Simulated assay, not measured.
Amino acid sequence: MQTVHTIAELRHALRHAERPAFVPTMGNLHAGHLALVAQARPLGDATVASIFVNRLQFLPHEDFDSYPRTFTADQAKLAAAGCDVLFAPREADLYPEPQTFKVQPDPALADLLEGEFRPGFFTGVATVVMKLFMAVFAGKPQGVAVFGKKDYQQLMVIRGLVRQLALPIDIAGHDTERAADGLALSSRNGYLSEAERAEALQLPLALRVLARDALAAAHALPERLPALEAAAMQQLAARGWQPDYLTVRRRADLLPPQRGDGQGALVALGAARLGGTRLIDNLEI
């Protein structure tokens, strides 16, 4: 595996590739990230991963400075997974001047859910993804990028970005990788104490219960859903969580369900803070 740090070095490393397959990450890699690399490998003629902790998507009170950085271990994991090129830019490599030109995603999607609780988050995501895409795919006739479905809304934002800007990039989604007990794999799971790690299972459990109850109420879901969502949030709050949202939305646009929406059209999504750690998860219904 070749490791490069500048955009020029990356483009030189990919000079013979016609269809790069790209997996962007912020490092602190776990089995979920490596599953994305495994999915990407047969989709292109060069497999590229990036490691970059993107300052633009962190709010001032969030964990940019303390976000785990495990570069040496990550490098070894990617090499063992069959990655061809690791792009690991320094901040000055990717942002050599203040990034005053930014990508503003559609507020109808980006200001919901995560965007409501983390204002500006998706602008930071869309901007860095666009810059990474230009670094990896510039001059290429076609490319593919793989993202995990755990960040469900993020995947929708990126698909919208690629579609509306007519980028020659296929976006592949990968089902959420979970631990044996059902907890979604996340770099932030490492923040959890042993007791919190056991308690964290209550988030996917709450989403499963909410999804079950929503299907049972499908005949009157628009009317009954607010009470179901409130009950799910109250149950987590009673266990010491600070829930931001537990909700059922349409997969197509993340808007509230309408009459007639049912199985195959919906997704349950949740975000809640356990101690000092904010966890997210989702379950397609």
Rank of each mutant, 00 (worst) to 15 (best):
E223S: 11
R250F: 07
A220C: 11
Y245H: 06
L246D: 04
A227N: 02
M233P: 01
Y245M: 05
T247G: 11
A237D: 14
L236K: 05
P256M: 01
A220K: 10
P243R: 12
P222H: 06
L225C: 05
A230Y: 10
P256K: 05
A252W: 00
Y245C: 08
P222C: 06
L228Q: 00
Y245E: 09
L228R: 00
R239T: 13
Y245Q: 10
R250W: 04
L254I: 03
L225Q: 04
R239Q: 15
D253P: 01
L255A: 13
L246A: 03
Q235V: 09
A231L: 09
D253C: 02
R224V: 07
R224T: 11
A237I: 10
V248K: 10
L221N: 05
L246R: 03
A237F: 08
R239L: 14
Q234K: 13
E223W: 02
R251K: 14
R251Q: 15
E223C: 04
L255H: 12
R251H: 09
A220Y: 01
T247K: 10
R224K: 13
A218E: 13
E223A: 14
L225M: 05
R249F: 04
A252N: 01
A237M: 10
R250C: 10
R249I: 08
R251Y: 00
W241A: 08
P222T: 02
Q242M: 12
A252I: 09
E223D: 14
R250D: 12
P226L: 06
R239Y: 09
Y245F: 14
L246C: 04
Q235R: 15
H219G: 09
A252L: 09
H219D: 15
W241V: 07
V248H: 10
P226T: 08
R239W: 04
G240S: 11
P243F: 11
L254K: 03
E229C: 05
V248N: 12
D253F: 00
A252R: 10
W241R: 04
R224M: 07
L254C: 06
A238C: 07
R250I: 09
E223F: 03
H219C: 06
M233Y: 05
L254F: 08
T247P: 07
A238K: 13
G240N: 11
A232I: 01
A252S: 13
P256V: 02
R249L: 09
A220E: 14
A237N: 11
Q235G: 09
L221Q: 04
A227I: 04
P256F: 01
A238V: 11
E223V: 06
W241T: 05
G240I: 09
A237G: 10
M233T: 12
V248W: 12
L221R: 02
L255G: 05
A232W: 00
H219K: 11
P243W: 12
A220F: 01
M233V: 06
R249A: 14
R249Y: 05
A231D: 14
H219N: 12
W241D: 05
L254V: 06
L228K: 02
A230R: 15
M233F: 05
T247C: 13
L221T: 01
L246E: 02
E229G: 00
L228Y: 01
T247D: 13
A227L: 06
A238L: 11
A237S: 15
R250P: 10
M233A: 15
E229H: 03
H219I: 02
Q242L: 14
